[in-house]
């Protein structure tokens, strides 16, 4: 595991000058993960903020080979890349010889939880050797903040607007990390960019594994969360301290909670930081907030129950 100093002195593979928003969680996520790969990486990115914000001609933020194909198929594209590489390597036809190349697919929550889910699931099942990174900012931010299946309950988006009768999104978010764990892959990690050490450690482990691995990383979005750009990392931290976004990993089927907050903060602490939940604090929404808390408590308890255990 690299120290912060070592990490900082490594070459930046996702470099500055991109057009992602100030305070966006994606750039620190990408920088930390790519610095932890330990080998050259070829990347595919599905349609989304990262794709649009990092590749506007004539600039690119990527110091790696990079392909964008469509919205729904990062999992399939990386499958093709990895399969071709493996075949060429086997036949001795690679100009780089036996030099190891890593493969990484990146999608937002829309491109991963929703439209790209089938491609991801297929790639995991076929067992391609790649790391899938989901930056989860909890809505379709690139097209203007529409709800996704990762949007937290109670959140106002442009397609789950908060009105006097319906206060934002009515459903719990999909627990994608858990669904990926159910695929039985060798490594799955859920992380946050505010904790660089946790993220770098998980990226290192994910890249070291032969076979498909998955990282789900919460990505604060000042635009869609209605926060000031300077509080992004704080917002991510409170997401973890309220156990909305637990940091954990499942390695070879063994579950490990990487961080247990000394005091589990109430979810209001996180909700109040963000404009997307402000309607919950106008009028009486105690029932809905209690329901949000109930979902978090249930998930957290489930994680505590299986912490340290072999779950498959």
């Amino acid at each position: 595991m690299a120290t912060l100093k070592e990490l900082a002195s490594k070459e930046e593979l996702f470099c500055g000058g991109h057009r992602l928003c100030a305070g966006c969680g994606i750039p620190p996520i990408m920088r930390t993960i790519l610095k932890s790969a330990g080998a050259p990486v070829a990347v595919t990115t599905s349609t989304g903020c990262l794709e649009v914000g990092s590749t506007i001609y004539p600039y690119s933020a990527w110091r790696t080979p990079w392909i964008h194909s469509a919205f729904e198929n990062a999992g399939a594209t990386i499958s093709g890349m990895e399969a071709a590489y493996t075949a060429l390597k086997r036949k001795g036809k690679l100009p780089c010889g036996d030099k190891e190349i890593k493969f990484m697919a990146v999608g937002g929550d829309g491109g991963t939880y929703d439209i790209g889910f089938q491609a991801l699931s297929g790639a995991l099942e076929r067992g391609h050797d790649f790391v899938y990174v989901c930056y989860d900012n909890g809505a379709y931010m690139n097209t203007g903040i529409q709800r996704s299946s990762a949007t937290p309950m109670g959140s106002a988006t442009t397609t789950s607007p908060a009105g006097s009768v319906i206060p934002g999104k009515q459903e719990y978010r999909k627990d994608l990390t858990r669904i990926v764990v159910a695929h039985g892959v060798k490594y799955v990690g859920q992380s946050s960019p505010h904790n660089w050490k946790d993220l770098a450690m998980k990226a290192e482990k994910a890249f070291a594994v032969k076979g498909p691995t998955f990282l789900n990383v919460i990505s604060p979005c000042p635009l869609g969360w209605y926060t000031k750009s300077e509080v992004s990392m704080e917002t991510a931290k409170v997401a973890v301290d309220t156990c909305f976004w637990p940091l954990y990993e499942v390695e070879e089927g063994v579950m490990k909670l990487n961080y247990k907050p000394k005091t589990k903060r109430p979810i209001e602490d996180w909700l109040k930081m963000q404009g997307r939940f402000k309607h919950l604090f106008k009028g009486d929404h105690t029932e809905l907030i209690a329901k949000i808390q109930e979902g978090i408590d249930k998930d957290w308890q489930r994680l505590l129950d299986i912490d340290g255990k072999a779950i498959f």
Binding site: I115, F117, T143, G144, Q146
Partner: peptide
């Protein structure tokens, strides 16, 4: 959601429930 048509869904996500209609954002 898809640019440049997204506003149609956004507007109907607000207006359809007002008349007892139904808006669903699908997974793809």
């Amino acid at each position: 959601p898809i640019t440049p048509s997204t506003e149609i869904g956004e507007i109907l996500s607000y207006k359809l429930p007002l008349i007892g209609g139904k808006f669903i954002q699908m997974e793809d």
